[in-house]
């Protein structure tokens, strides 16, 4: 988390290369068969619950169990380790990279993630705001809701087990919400981004600047 931002440097970076590069790594050890070509287009998951899988990227086989691994984002395969095709790989070995074209909103969120306190998901599960927080959000909007360490802010719901999640970061307002009710969040992914009150002007500056620069470019 940073307190000052060099706008020119960051915006220059996104202007010259408005893409995110996502490495695709082996989910576990096994024999790998790549199923997309370099330069190929890949699609992200879709559907109401993001239940329609993205493009199949590779097949990995361990002890006669095959698994097809699909893309979590859209973009183009910018590089592929063709030498690993048909070979046994270790868990975590990089297989390919997806070049994902970023939208203005994603660029703003990426920059904000460097400024906000990100509160991560403790387990892969579905998340909901606690009743109290939800009613405050409905009344005033998330950005008017201040939370403090120790507040019960979210309920984690998994297999009919509901666990209250207590906030443990710096006090601030809920600036960004990264989860949607009914959609599973992976362990470690951010649930919310919290902004300390004194940083709100900085946040506004980021958004105004990105929007202005981006719109001028278009």
């Amino acid at each position: 988390m940073v307190h000052e931002i060099d706008f020119d440097e960051i915006l220059g970076k996104y202007r010259s290369d408005p893409y995110d590069y996502i490495d695709v790594c082996a989910t576990h050890t096994g024999l790998v068969r790549c199923l997309v070509p370099e330069g190929g287009e890949v699609a992200a998951p879709s559907g109401e619950w993001l239940h329609i899988p993205g493009t199949v990227l590779y097949e990995i086989t361990r002890e006669r169990n095959s698994k097809f691994v699909t893309s979590h984002t859209n973009g183009t395969i910018s590089s592929i380790h063709a030498e690993l095709d048909g070979r046994f790989v270790e868990a975590g070995e990089k297989l390919m990279t997806i070049r994902h074209p970023m939208k203005k909103k994603e660029i703003i969120e990426n920059i904000l993630k460097e400024v906000l306190f990100l509160f991560p998901a403790p387990e892969r599960a579905k998340y909901f705001f606690s009743l109290d927080i939800q009613s405050r959000i409905e009344k005033k909007g998330a950005r008017a809701v201040t939370i403090n360490a120790g507040d019960e802010i979210i309920t984690m719901s998994l297999m009919k087990r509901d666990t209250p999640i207590y906030y443990d970061g710096e006090p601030g307002v809920i600036y960004s919400v990264y989860f949607r009710p009914g959609i599973s969040v992976s362990q470690g992914d951010p649930l919310i981004g919290v902004c300390a009150p004194e940083k709100l002007p900085l946040i506004q500056k980021i958004i105004t600047r990105v929007k202005a620069d981006w719109d001028a470019e278009q």
């Binding site: 239940h51 599960a125 579905k126 719901s157 297999m159 009919k160 599973s184």
Partner: peptide
């Protein structure tokens, strides 16, 4: 299996 032929894994809910 949904009516459009796609499938979904329900991890939560009822």
């Amino acid at each position: 299996r949904l009516d459009d032929g796609s499938s979904l894994a329900l991890q939560s809910g009822e």
